[in-house]
């Protein structure tokens, strides 16, 4: 790359290159965030059930 302008326009291929990278970014971010969130939610759920059992 020689300039920022060339980088942004991707030599005329911007309409194909940037959407590709965009969708990869979105899917990878989703894959990175969702499992951790599910893990925390699951732990919270197990803890809640355990408390319920103890109070009974």
């Amino acid at each position: 790359m020689k300039s920022w302008h060339e980088f942004i326009t991707m030599g005329g291929y911007a309409a194909y290159v940037w959407p590709s990278y965009g969708i990869v970014l979105v899917v990878m971010l989703a894959n990175a965030i969702l499992p951790g969130r599910r893990q925390r939610r699951l732990l919270r759920e197990i803890r809640r059930k355990q408390r319920e059992e103890q109070t009974e």
Binding site: E6, M10, G11, G12, Y13, Y16, V17, S20, Y21, V24
Partner: peptide, 15 residues
């Protein structure tokens, strides 16, 4: 850039 595909070939790095 690729001599045939110009900057379009850069999709290779994710594909």
């Amino acid at each position: 850039p690729d001599y045939q595909q110009g900057d379009g070939f850069r999709i290779i790095y994710v594909h």
